[in-house]
Design a binder for these strands. Structure first.
Length: 855
RNA sequence: GGGCGCAUAGCUCAGUUGGCUAGAGCGCUUCCCUUACAAGGAAGAUGUCGGGGGUUCGAGUCCCUCUGCGCCCACCA
């Protein structure tokens, strides 16, 4: 127990208490507690790229308040931390930080030194380095970033058990990721397929539906006539189509119109000639064609957009591929396309090709009118800079209901087994699952990630047999198939006919982070632990990744365990700029969390976070942080004040020792607050708990403490003074504990002045009375305080000090209030410096106040 | 096009099963060094509860409708 400082201060308490909690192991998970005594949290592993931002502070604080509450309720809290360090963000950051790029054809260089450590100059040409060298740099940078993140999150006061740390690229995660996937493969929940896929031409990788977004981009309709062929019953002539992608004419495989469209019905089944390139394509009917769009008839290319894929598949059309994986027009023309015309665009980028084709159309008088500019949504990879193309490639998929109505319905129903906070977030989940149009693409053509643990046997011609993949035994995991050989083969058979070849790809980062409960809970590695924490109690996360992280975790858990991965999903909102726009990281001069911690104190920043209600977008507000600092400061000061009165004498119980009705009224009010705050926390509503606690706290400081402090000083009435001391300490202890989840540092500091162990391990307060036997009449104090307020008003209006004496106070009140006034009479006289107090009968509560003029 | 959310004081927001004169903080005005706190305290002003209609003894709260803002989703040539 420390001494009460003369001058309480918030300065420096973060470092002091963080170090103390670390060395005491305050937040260590007790793995011997049975499942029902555990509260387990599926912490979001932050992407370790760049710096901690306010969004992290906001949502991680929310989770931490729940963790701290549950711990105080006696639960063994399983609160791990992970780093999501594999995947594209890390690759991109490595490129930018070291000025390098990965080129798998480069040889490995022992002891490679990157050209830069830290931002290279803008004009620097990235140095091509081998994949192993690139991965070494990934590891190096990730290490640096993770240390910074850990420091910042400790400074934020998260009650994480840091011994439960993991990283999505570490060996355990790779093992879990590969094991889960292999089981998916074995059970038929994962499969590989050669198919058209959304493709980012800069990252040169396939991307999943969930990572795709629409962006409004300028484009232009080009109206182009297609010549009817001689066999056409409609005779010679042309059909005009509108397209925004004239560069894809060479990839055209058909035209399509709606089956009911009378304008085109006569032409269905006949052919037209594609301008410039000469291939003959059929005119088809399909109900996805919209008669009122463009000219009502569209050109189908392989592939311009996802509708083309649908048409291509459903109409059983041929394929004419012209766009390569680098986004350039392939050098080899597709079949039946005019070789000379094609040669003029071969090798060009899509943009260049469009320009060339339009010029050629104009020259050949094949463009009807001018191109008409429009704004239209174009599909982008969410991290990408150029529109997605569609290329055909072999990829791995995990079934997620996108092609199977039964599975889809099952996964939608799983959403109903989770309790959502706030409840309406469930709609987003259902909305997404019901809108899926394909399985989950998990393979990526990248470098830094978990390798797909698969090989393919090579036949006598050296061709891979994709439908008979070679799977490693689980005991070998993790494997890297690019350096490990499959069972029954030796390394010198790699790439040889009759030998094997490795799957060259890695998993998308979500394929691993969808297993965070399994990774953190050491699935299949520590069965005892896993039993105690899974399914987890809580999944905290932001609402924008319901379609990715939440849904993918649900899918994996459903496949592997046939259950939901957690009981509760707690969604936090966005941080908005003070002008209510979504806060953007790109704004250079955004304040950093560390600056705010130092300016206002961590508790103040947490207070702002804790005021943001679950799931609600919240404006960034330094004003709120100032209020939080005031609150934390007040907590220290009122603690000092209450404690300095000393402990009440004797060893009486609360019920026995709190004799004054005013004191019992205060404790009865406190009871109601405890009940409300407890219910709010049980419902994951930290903000409501904070608000109730805070409102009571200010009332307590401004009114109750002011009212009873005279009596507490009064040595002539020891029983009455003791009653106040007991009540003050009871309330103080309860409030310190109720603030502890939000203001862990200030609460611990204040608590430490009169307790030996941490407030964060103290029991959550419970009411002094209960419904059947309330501790007191909570309204009793209100009358006295109303009169006190009127006295204060009189002094303020007279521009006198609050200390000024009142010569006489006449209170008129209905007889029903006499008892209440009587109960507070002595306290009122003390607090108001009242020399003479009379109570007379009246219809309503009113006062006549005469100030003394002798001070 | 489908779905969800929001709209209360100048600002940020409470207002939980419908119930007395609609609340808090910030900001603003006035006053006060008072033995916890001047990084403090006391007091004050400020509202067509987005519009309209309905149910009810009674609606910020429930129902319908309109408007505005935001978000999510969708196969927009």
């Amino acid at each position: 127990m420390a001494n009460i400082p003369d001058k309480p201060t918030l300065d420096g308490i973060e470092d002091r208490w963080a170090a103390q909690w670390d060395s005491d192991g305050t937040y260590r998970f007790d793995a011997s507690v049975p499942r029902e005594g555990v509260f387990s949290i599926d912490t979001p592993p932050p992407t370790v790229s760049g710096s901690l931002h306010m969004g992290h502070v906001f949502s991680y604080t929310h989770t931490d308040t729940i963790a701290r509450y549950q711990r105080m309720r006696g639960k063994a809290v399983f609160y791990p931390m992970g780093w999501d360090d594999n995947g594209l963000p890390t690759e991109r950051r490595v490129q930018n930080y070291y000025g390098v790029r990965c080129d798998p054809s480069q040889p490995y260089v022992e002891g490679f030194e990157p050209p830069f450590r830290g931002d290279p100059p803008k004009n620097h040409q990235a140095v091509a380095i081998s994949r192993p060298n690139f991965l070494e740099l990934c590891d190096e940078l990730v290490e640096i970033d993770e240390q910074i993140f850990e420091m910042l999150l400790k400074r934020l006061g998260l009650s994480v058990d840091w011994s439960l740390k993991y990283a999505t690229i570490d060996e355990r995660s790779r093992r879990a990721s590969q094991r889960a996937f292999l089981r998916n493969v074995t059970r038929g929940e994962a499969y590989s397929q050669e198919a058209p896929t959304l493709w980012d031409i800069d990252f040169r990788t396939a991307v999943a539906q969930a990572e795709m977004e629409d962006r409004e981009r300028p484009g232009a309709y080009h109206k182009i006539p297609f010549a009817l062929t001689g066999t056409n019953p409609g005779g010679t002539g042309t059909i005009e189509i509108d397209t925004t992608r004239p560069e894809l004419l060479a990839a055209c495989v058909a035209l399509v119109a709606h089956p009911d469209d009378e304008r085109y019905q006569p032409h269905f089944g006949t052919t037209v000639t594609v301008p410039l390139y000469g291939q003959q394509v059929e005119i088809c009917a399909h109900e996805l064609a919209e008669p009122d769009k463009g000219t009502g008839i569209a050109m189908i290319c392989t592939f311009g957009d996802t509708t083309d894929v649908t048409w291509w598949r459903e109409l059983n059309l041929p394929m004419r591929t012209i766009i390569g994986r680098d986004g350039r027009i392939l050098t080899e023309p597709p079949h039946d396309v005019d070789v000379d015309a094609y040669a003029t665009i071969a090798g060009l980028t899509v943009k260049q090709a469009q320009k060339t084709v339009v010029e050629q159309l104009v020259e050949a008088d094949l463009l009807v009118g001018e191109p008409r500019p429009i704004q239209h949504p174009v599909k982008f990879y969410e991290r990408g800079d150029r529109p997605l193309e569609i290329v055909t490639s072999r990829q791995w998929y995990i079934r997620n209901g996108g092609r199977d109505a039964d599975l889809r319905a099952t996964l939608v129903a799983r959403g109903g087994e989770v309790e959502w906070h706030p409840a309406h977030m469930r709609h987003r989940y259902e909305n997404w699952v019901e809108g899926l149009n394909g399985d989950w693409l998990v393979s990526r053509q990248r470098f830094f990630g978990v390798p797909i643990p698969i090989w393919y046997p090579l036949d006598e011609q050296g061709e891979p047999t994709y439908d008979a993949p070679l799977l490693p035994d689980e005991s070998r995991l993790p494997v890297d198939p690019s350096t490990d050989a499959p069972d029954g083969y030796s390394e010198d058979q790699r790439g040889q006919p009759g030998g094997f070849v490795a799957d060259p790809d890695i998993f998308d980062t979500w394929a691993t982070s969808s297993l965070t409960p399994q990774i953190a809970g050491r699935w299949e590695e520590d069965g005892d632990l896993f039993e105690r924490v899974f399914p987890m109690d809580m999944r905290p996360q932001a609402h924008d990744i319901i379609r990715t992280w939440l849904f993918s975790t649900m899918t994996r858990s459903h496949h592997e365990f046939g259950c939901v991965p957690w009981a509760h999903a707690a969604l936090s909102g966005w941080i908005l700029d003070p002008d209510r726009k979504k806060m953007s990281k790109s704004k250079g001069n955004v304040v950093t969390p560390l600056d705010l911690f130092e300016t206002y104190g961590t508790d103040a920043v947490r207070y702002w976070s804790g005021s943001g209600r679950p799931g609600v977008d919240t404006a960034f507000s330094e004003d709120q942080m100032k209020v939080g600092r005031k609150l934390a400061n007040k907590l220290l000061n009122v603690t000092k004040f209450v404690l300095q009165f000393g402990a009440p004498s004797g060893d009486r119980s609360l019920d026995d020792g709190v004799t004054e009705p005013i004191d019992r009224a205060m404790l009865a009010k406190l009871d109601a607050v405890i009940v409300e705050a407890t219910a709010a926390f049980d419902a994951y509503d930290y903000a409501r708990a904070l608000e109730r606690t805070e409102a009571f706290f200010w009332w307590f400081c401004d009114n109750y403490v002011e009212l009873v402090k005279g009596r507490t000083y009064d040595e002539s009435r020891p029983d009455a003074a003791d009653s106040a001391k007991r009540a003050l300490r009871e309330a103080l202890g309860a409030m310190q504990r109720m603030f502890a989840p939000i203001l862990p540092f200030a609460a611990e500091e204040a608590w430490s002045w009169w307790n030996d162990s941490s407030v964060h391990l103290a029991a959550w307060p419970s009411p002094s009375g209960d419904g059947a036997a309330p501790f007191g009449d909570p309204s009793l104090a209100d009358v006295t305080i109303e009169v006190l307020t009127q006295v204060r008003r009189a002094k303020t209006e007279a521009k006198r000090s609050q200390r000024a004496a009142v010569e006489s106070l006449v209170v008129s009140a209905p007889p029903a209030l006499y008892a209440a006034i009587d109960a507070g009479r002595n306290d009122l006289v003390d607090a108001g410096s009242i020399r003479d107090l009379q109570v007379v009968d009246g219809d309503t509560l009113a006062t006549v106040i005469t100030l003394a003029d002798d001070d």
